[in-house]
Design a protein around this nucleic acid. Structure first.
Lengths: 180, 180
DNA sequence: GTGCCCTGTAAGTACCTGCTTGCAATAAAG
DNA sequence: CTTTATTGCAAGCAGGTACTTACAGGGCAC
């Protein structure tokens, strides 16, 4: 409910109704609305079960694309929560989970790029963190906006992620075979 | 106030107080809170004064980078509004302005890429819309999150936008001289 | 069966929500 | 000066907000 209507919209009465219990029970369990929301967000956020990127890059396109697709699926699955968190970030910064998969993916991809650079397979003059942001920001925004702006984002997710990965990899200096 | 605390948070009493007028005056002028917020958002959104991208690309890096920097500045200037709009997109889709600079920039950059492709200066197998999203999503998210997550985004805006543009241009097949 | 714990009901706190009514004050336009 | 339009003030509406108190009932371990 927090993901859908935000902190102010998720009233204790609505929560109790949705939960099928008395409003008073909520306060007996959590003490306050703030504690309730905080616990709820901490519990039902996205899980950090990401397939890892290989330690030694072999075929970047074959490795990054499924990884990006999984990351995209996670962003899309939790799109309502992510959107609300972004919108209420100023008022409720404490509701941002430091273990969010975005940050973990960020570190993962940065490390991967660094290994590509060390192997001489990626341009040495690009900043790995900035390059990671290029792919992850693109995938994140596409994943959380796609369903709400079908007119603006008409193509399929698979096509978009493929394009994003292609442009990203070529951008850091990795050769990707021509797309169909 | 809508940009800062959202639709529910921007109560008529708070608005009247901030405006230095009586709460009743608001209702006499706008009729309802919904009409007030709607008018306010329609009036004080980001202006669409973008420097145009050249009709015939000559030096893509020299042309895209200042353009992206200006776009970034606009996103950052209206970051609170953009964040709130994203967070409340589900509940208040009518508050999204169809003339938002993001959409205009999207079309601008797509057309620019198409001209680069026509001139044989960009890979023909990349989708211009997807490629535009790569740069614009990256710049947008960076612009609206940077100030609220200083630990995650430590570098300067200029450095980041430069990196984003570099990766983006190389990603679509444009050669960019090595960064310092 | 007897405590014990959890839950539900009922009522109520003080305050906020969008919104309305009645009436006086003010200021500009004719 | 009179008319007219706009504003402010005070009060109030019905309903919602988080949250509390007091009390009764039901299931469980012992």
């Amino acid at each position: 409910m927090y993901a859908e209507v935000g902190y102010r919209g998720a009233t204790t009465r609505r929560i109790a109704g949705e939960a099928g219990c008395n409003e008073l029970t909520l306060f007996r369990h959590f003490g306050s609305k703030a504690a309730l929301i905080h616990d709820a967000v901490a519990c039902c956020g996205p899980e950090s079960k990401l397939i890892p990127l290989p330690d030694t890059p072999v075929d970047p396109y074959a490795e990054v694309k499924p990884w990006a697709l999984l990351h995209f699926a996670q962003m899309r699955e939790h799109q309502a929560m992510i959107r609300t968190t972004i919108g209420e970030l100023e008022e409720h910064p404490e509701l941002v989970r430091p273990s969010d998969p975005y940050v973990l993916a960020y570190d993962q991809l940065s490390g991967y790029i660094r290994k590509l650079q060390a192997a001489g397979r990626a341009h040495a003059d690009v900043d790995p963190e900035s390059a990671s942001a290029v792919l992850l920001n693109t995938v994140l925004l596409n994943g959380i906006m796609r369903d709400l702006m079908p007119g603006v984002i008409p193509d399929t997710p698979e096509f978009h992620v493929d394009q994003f990965v292609t442009v990203f990899l070529r951008g850091i200096g990795v050769t990707v075979p021509p797309r169909a």
